[in-house]
């Protein structure tokens, strides 16, 4: 007898839920990282479904660089309250005091405000496993990432020394001080994410939808002027343009695209016919080839 076949999205959902439940059952002190973006929204939604009627048996953690879009923080606070989940916020306070910002400190900014803050948060609470929304289709070095990715005491990743992952038999055992990053969305593509958001009617930050927003053009990217900390170059001028964002992060580092897509169907339509893979709208990735891998070895998510 042939088995009934689940759709592509059903299979991805089942796989992610299986992974999330395994971590909850086997790890001592897991946490789910929540970046407020669409992938995190999907992951949060899956966590709610995986344990229903129970709430997820672990807290959520947001690494706040203090340069996120205002609408992101509002959305985060509203979601945590609505769902009744524990939301931990970590900020590298020392760096904030030193005035570290994305304009003057370039790639060091990402390391200090994101990577260091993340490590501080994980160490502070002693989390042994952290879920992340990373997908293998995002970037070449992520294409080789395991679902369970092991990090040493310093949170560093050794691509040559990862555990073989067979079937669904995840080995979650670690030595003292080591930790894991777990990626339940490993096998999802950007298209899958959008289709799942539509199918499940998942709430996402309004920034994904096209709207008139104050922006400037900088190095070929459209950057939104979200508050008055944005320093303008002499030749730059703030214009209102109908834009939306394909990924969300720190507003000065996130490129928008001009678009009229203000419904999910229109976004999906644009995405399916997209001529540019999504990470090009992250300004940070346009450094030398292999930049993501280098950052990962240093502990970036």
């Amino acid at each position: 007898m042939k088995t009934q076949e689940l759709t592509h999205l059903d299979q991805l959902e089942a796989e992610a839920i299986y992974i999330i439940r395994e971590v909850a059952a086997e790890c001592e002190n897991p946490v789910m990282l929540y970046s407020i973006g669409k992938d995190s929204s999907v992951m949060l939604h899956l966590a709610m479904k995986a344990f229903y009627p129970e709430k997820p048996p672990f807290p959520f953690m947001h690494v706040n660089t203090t340069w996120k879009f205002k609408e992101m923080i509002e959305f985060r606070n509203r979601k945590a309250k609505e769902l009744g989940i524990e939301m931990i916020e970590v900020i590298n306070e020392e760096a904030v005091e030193q005035g570290i910002n994305p304009f003057d400190h370039g790639s060091a900014y990402t390391d200090i405000m994101k990577t260091q803050a993340l490590k501080q948060g994980l160490d502070k609470y002693g989390f042994d496993a952290a879920f992340g929304g990373g997908r293998r289709d995002e970037e070449k070095s992520r294409a080789k990432e395991r679902v369970f990715s092991f990090r040493n005491k310093n949170h560093a990743w050794d691509p040559k020394n990862q555990k073989p992952e067979m079937w669904k038999l995840y080995n979650t055992r670690i030595n003292k001080g080591e930790s894991m990053r777990v990626f339940p969305l490993s096998n999802w593509t950007e298209k899958d994410i959008w289709q799942y958001i539509r199918k499940e009617n998942i709430d996402i930050v309004p920034l994904y939808f096209a709207k008139e927003r104050p922006v400037v053009e900088r190095d070929g990217n459209i950057v939104m002027v979200d508050d008055d900390r944005m320093k303008l170059e002499p030749n730059e001028e703030v214009k209102m343009k109908k834009v939306r964002f394909r990924t969300l992060g720190c507003y000065p580092l996130t490129g928008g695209v001009e678009s009229d897509a203000d419904t999910l169907d229109e976004i999906i339509e644009e995405t399916l016919g997209a001529v540019s893979s999504e990470r090009t709208s992250r300004v940070i990735d346009q450094e030398a080839a292999g930049s993501m891998e280098r950052r990962k070895r240093e502990g970036y998510f």
Partner: peptide
């Protein structure tokens, strides 16, 4: 398009599993 990791590019071999998605 597929040989992603720097170490592999240098050695010219594929050392880990790379996953690709297409429709």
């Amino acid at each position: 398009l597929l040989d992603g990791l720097m170490a592999e590019r240098e050695q010219g071999i594929t050392i880990d599993v790379a996953y690709r998605y297409f429709t």
